[in-house]
Structures are given as structure tokens and as C-alpha cells.
Design a protein around this nucleic acid. Sequence first.
DNA 1: CGCTCGGGTGATCTTAATTCATCCGAAGCA
DNA 2: TGCTTCGGATGAATTAAGATCACCCGAGCG
Lengths: 301, 301
Amino acid sequence: MKFRRLPPLHTLEAFDAAARSLSFKRAAGELHLTPSAISHQIKSLEHFLGIDLFRRGNRTLELTDGGRAYLAVVRDTLTRLREGSGRVVQRYGRASLKISMGPYLASEIVVPALASFQEAHPDIDVRIETELRPIDLLQEDLDIALRFGRGQWPHLTAERLMTVAAVPVCTPALARQLRKTTPAQLGAVALIHSIPLPDGWQDWARGASVTLGAAASDIWLDSYLAILRAAEQGVGLAMGLVPMVNPWLRQKKLAMPWPQLRSELPQGYYLLHRKDDGERREVLLFRDWLQALLQRETVLD
Amino acid sequence: MKFRRLPPLHTLEAFDAAARSLSFKRAAGELHLTPSAISHQIKSLEHFLGIDLFRRGNRTLELTDGGRAYLAVVRDTLTRLREGSGRVVQRYGRASLKISMGPYLASEIVVPALASFQEAHPDIDVRIETELRPIDLLQEDLDIALRFGRGQWPHLTAERLMTVAAVPVCTPALARQLRKTTPAQLGAVALIHSIPLPDGWQDWARGASVTLGAAASDIWLDSYLAILRAAEQGVGLAMGLVPMVNPWLRQKKLAMPWPQLRSELPQGYYLLHRKDDGERREVLLFRDWLQALLQRETVLD
DNA sequence: CGCTCGGGTGATCTTAATTCATCCGAAGCA
DNA sequence: TGCTTCGGATGAATTAAGATCACCCGAGCG
């Protein structure tokens, strides 16, 4: 009981993506779907139109003439709609995003890149809060929270942003010394612990299958940024989290004494938002932008 | 796990319809949905954009400024997509529709209006078959069938086209005579029966709560067209089906002796097609066109 | 010659969309 | 001033659309 003289929009997006990459698999990756879904969508679009859009060589896709012509229509339609929506929102909308994240993520990753988001979407007011209360209901007027955890947040949509691996870091000078020993013999070195991730060292040792010797002293700090700063100052060994620690390694502020002793953590970084906000434009745009940003950061590993 | 920077298309259709009629109820009628569905869709579109599109006066809708601006974008988008799709299909597609229907529907209703469909969609070859085999699987190469029945066709999509009412008809002269009597006293008048609808007279009598007297004679014919022709020639009383008989009444070829003795039939006319064809462009276009056509025919009742 | 890789397909399952049942407030009418 | 009607809003329940899963197939590659 439905009347469309128009193909469903999502098939157009799928078609555009597939035509751009000439691969259902890549298009699926781009749209965060399975190749099967793309295949079904394209098929239903072809069925709707009554014409074939792709010629399926066995491991190669190519557009038919009709497909090429239709691609132009679809591109035109989608860009007009996208731009038109943006223009109207910019003119009449008062979109704002209040985002909560840890101080490290804020100061090292998100804020430095934020200009590019503002530039792309000048109509969206972004407001970042770095208070990291453990009890963090989105009952208050927050739109998005970035949190470290296992992805279990009841009544919220949680989307994994990155998988995180633990690896010990310290000053390059200290790293050179430690390289000659093992984690079992820490000697005079202090271990820097993170209050948000209290079992970090044990989890790492288990994951990397090493035994961890007693440290000369144990220091506890309450934020990831503080830990890295302490390590940078030569206080001792801190548990670095890849890829967040990458910029510090690149800039030689920190180094890894045992780069191969890296262990994946069961936790990861998640983007949380209310379920009703799952289609809010600002939320989607920020999520896309952040994912692309972290992608780049991770690739430069 | 879905990435849209674009609102879902169906909300755009709903928005367009609602903005056109400035009523969720009328928009719902137009799109064959409930007002509730329209309300939800508009709400989700507003939520996506972050701006209000309508100002809801209590029994009156009006567009906000943003809504007016967005309407322009949406109209532009939809018409471009519609026209673009049509153009591409016209150029590269070889759409055809094979439609089966009874001789009456074909010759009296569909064929006379068919030119308007051809004109609107010159890329679609329409082929009408009037053979009315009772066993009519769409296993063969038919795309659409129009059939009289109760809407129960297993494995097919059946959509009601019109509700049908039965009312006796005959020549105007005979009608004038009969007006003085009742259906219980038919006297010398013959009853014309339809083989496709064998219980037509009984069903009508029951529905109109009248008793039907014995007829001078009973004549059986195998198509609706044949029945009306016979009645037109003064053979006797035929069971006319409203609205199909309307043109004959309008042209005074036939008249109703007892216009108030009209009874709704449980059967109706249905459009049938394979379930996979539910989104085929040609099928949708023909269905829309036919519904609009019958709408007009019915309104001129 | 077996293995990998990308795409196709139908059944199954999940999630999103629609309906259903109510509620609400304003206008129309007696 | 009540009483009813009408259009829209809202949240829960239902249904249908869409995505995934598990499988197939055929081509190229080692």
C-alpha cells in the first residue's frame, strides 16, 4: 500500500557509491553496510527502472550506458539535496552540539582539528566539555559523549570509534635503557597508573604474555593526558594507548621500550548519543567527521 | 550503523504532500498512509534538520520560513529525480506492460483513456489482453491483471481499485414502466444474468432487502459488456455495476428503474501483480494512472 | 589445481516505519 | 455553556522493509 514513482533514496546512495568505486565491496565499506546489501539495493533499483545499471564482469564492474546516464541524474539529485538542505539549515537553523570527552582526546585530537569541521559546517555551534564524570547520563543537555569502555551503555546508541592497544611508553632516554631489560625487571623505574583504567598494567601484562616486576614506586594520576605528561617528564613508565599516543611518539616526546609488547584492550573508544538522535544531521555530520579524523590518525600509526 | 547526511526520501515526499495540501490528513490520503504516519515522518525530518517546517495552529497548518525555503529545495530535488529517471528510462529502457482485463473494462474505461497514459509515458509499451480465463496465474508473461473478486489471490499483491454496487438497469423506456412496480412483480420482463457473477441477482436482492419475483425468462451471458448490450437492446433487466455502468447511464443508453435499490457487493475490482513487481516503475505508474482514472469516473457518478 | 576474491541469491533476522489507540485543544453548534 | 467534531500529537504495538548470513558460482593467481 505504497506509492512511489520515485526509487528509494538509499538505493541512490548505494548506486552513487558503487559507481564511484566500481566495486560493491568498497561501496559497502563506505556506507558501512555489507556487499550483499549493496547488491540487493542495486538490484532493486535496476528492477524499479527496468534497466541494467552495471555490467557485471566476473570480478569487475562497469557501468552500462544507461547506468552512466542515470549516475549523472543521481549525482545531480543528491548534491542538490545535500547542498540545499545545508543552505536552508544554515539560514534558518540554530544547530548546536554539546559534546563531552576526556581532556586528552579534546586537547590532543579533536580541538586541533576542529577548525576543519567548523569550516565545513559553519551553521553548527560546537561546544566541547572535558569534564569526565564517571556517571554520565545523557539526561542532561549533552548531545554526544566520547567514552572509553566496552560498548555497553544501556538506552544509548554506542558506536565504536577505534580499537585501542596498550603499550608502555616513557622518555626516549629511558626507553633506550629499558630496551636492554624486560618488564619483569623494572629496577628503579616508577610505574604510572591511570585512575580511569585502573587495571591497565595487569591487563597489558596478561595480553602481552609477560610478567610484570615490582616497580620502584607507583604513581596514580587521574587523566590520560596527565599520565603522558608525567612520562614525558621522566617520572617513569606510562601505559600508552595506541593510536592516541601516536602524535607523542611521532614528535619524539615519548618512545616505546618494547614496541612489540603491545596488547589489544577489550575496551575501546565509543561515541554515545541518545537513540532518538540517530538521524540528527549535526550528530551524523560530527560522527562522520570524527571517524574520518581518527582514521587518518590511525593510519599514520 | 548507518550514515546519512541526507534525510530519508519518503519524508521528503510526505513533506511535499503536506506542504501542498497544508494538511496532514489530506497528505496521508494522497500517499495512501495514515495521518499519524505523516506526522511521524515530518517530525523526523524536522528532527533531522534541526528546524521546524510547519507551525501547527490547532486546526491549521502553515509553513515556517524555513519550511518554505526547504520546500523549494525538496520540490526541485523530487522533480529533477522524477524527470531524470523518466528521461533515462525512456532513452535506455524498453519497458513494457502486458495487462489482462475483462472486455468491458478494456473497451469502455481503459482503452478510451489510454492515450493519456501513452502520452505521459511514451517509453512504456502497453499491451492489453481481454481474454478473461478464470484460471489466471501470473506465471505467464503478464505483468498486471484486473480482476473482479474478493481480494484473495494467494502469492499475489492485490489492490482494491473500486468498491462496486449493484443496481438493476434497462432501457429508459422500460425503466419508466417498471418504476411503477416493484422487483417482486417483474411480470413479462426478462432477467439477464452474468456468468462471471452467477449469484448477482440474489446477492443484490439480499443486499437491497427486497424480494425478487420470478422473471418471464432468464438469459445468461458471459461478459459484462454483453449484458449491458442486451439490456440496451431492450432484452430485459440487467444487473448494472456502479461505477462501471455510469457512462451508459450518463449517455441515456440505460436507466435505473429503482435507483435507491442499490446494494454494495462484497466483491470489487482488484489490480493484481507479482509481489516482486511491487516497486517496478511501469507497474506503479500504471496503477497511479488507473486509480486517478477510476477516481474521476466514480466522482462523476 | 586448489585457493582466494568479488559478486549473486534466498532465507532469516533485525530494525525502522506504519498503524493503532488515545489524548488534546480549538472551533462549531445548539 | 456544554457537547461534539475535527485535525494533529504521541507512544506502544505491529508489520514490513532492509540488512545480514550462509551459501553458491566462476575467474584469476600462485
